[in-house]
Amino acid sequence: MRYAQGGGLASGRRQDRERIRSRAAERFARDEKTSVIAADLRVSERPVQRRRRTWREDGPQGLASKGSAGRPRLTGAQFAVLEEEPAKGSAAHGRPDQRWTLERIRTAIGRRFHLTCSVPGVWRLLHRHGRSWQAPARHALERDQAAVELGKKDVWPHAEAPRRRSGPGWSSRTRPGSR
């Protein structure tokens, strides 16, 4: 089972897969047919063929799990170093303002650790470490909160498009001759 927060298989499920691979290795050693192994293990033949080739090239240890494919690329120590980067100031990073966008964090990771990652990968990394986007603590000095509330209450409802009514007899099209 995959998880939306960037995880892979749960540890119990990963162990089940490991047992299946070890059983397949035993059957490879007995030179059983691929189709028989696939049917017994309830998998398709193609993965069995790939595992058999890996078993021939690397032996049984080649079938061992390599870990989660989506494991974090930054270690905990590296993430701690990354957290110190904004404190150095924007001038140290060649930026005119104090904003730290996902793209800027991605660039900092690349420069500091010589790693490439995607913008969604940066978001997942920050999310795993309990970080989230931050709204500014203060609004612009020119902001008139009373006018904003008035606009939400009185002006915005009139600016919205009217909703289509549903049900019998409420059609946006009329048939010729129906009037």
Rank of each mutant, 00 (worst) to 15 (best):
E160W: 06
L125S: 03
R73W: 08
V155F: 13
V155T: 15
T174M: 04
R112W: 02
P176N: 11
T75P: 00
D154Y: 15
D58K: 14
A161L: 12
F113Y: 01
G169T: 07
H129Y: 07
G76K: 00
G121T: 08
R27C: 08
L115C: 02
V148Y: 11
R164S: 13
R42D: 14
R143N: 12
R104T: 12
K153Y: 11
R164P: 09
Q15P: 00
D40L: 12
R106Q: 15
A77I: 03
P162F: 04
R175C: 07
L125T: 05
P176F: 09
S172M: 12
S65E: 15
V48Q: 01
L82K: 07
R42H: 12
K153Q: 14
R46W: 09
K66W: 05
A135I: 10
R42A: 14
S118Y: 07
G89H: 01
R21S: 03
V148I: 15
R124D: 08
E57F: 04
R95S: 10
Q61K: 09
R164Q: 14
A159I: 08
G76M: 01
A147L: 14
H127C: 11
E83W: 07
V36A: 12
G59M: 00
R23A: 15
L141I: 09
R173K: 09
G7T: 02
A25E: 02
P120Y: 09
R163D: 13
R51V: 00
D154S: 15
R19H: 10
G8K: 02
D40A: 15
E32S: 03
D154Q: 15
A77L: 05
Q78K: 01
R27P: 03
R175W: 10
P47A: 03
Y3M: 06
L150E: 14
S90I: 03
G94L: 00
D97N: 15
T34Q: 06
P136N: 04
P86T: 02
I105G: 01
F79K: 00
A69S: 12
S90R: 06
R112T: 07
R52I: 01
G7P: 01
R53T: 03
R71M: 10
R124M: 11
R30C: 11
R50K: 14
G110Y: 05
R104C: 06
R13S: 07
A92V: 13
S22P: 00
R42E: 15
R124K: 11
D31V: 05
A91M: 05
R106I: 08
A24Q: 02
R52Q: 01
R71Q: 14
A108I: 05
T34P: 02
G70H: 10
A69I: 08
R17D: 08
G6I: 09
P168D: 03
R56V: 11
P157L: 04
S35K: 06
L150K: 15
L126E: 01
S172P: 05
R30I: 10
G110C: 05
P136F: 03
V43G: 00
L74R: 00
R124A: 08
G67N: 06
K66G: 10
R56S: 09
H93N: 02
K33D: 06
I109F: 00
R179E: 13
S171D: 07
L63F: 05
G67F: 09
A69T: 11
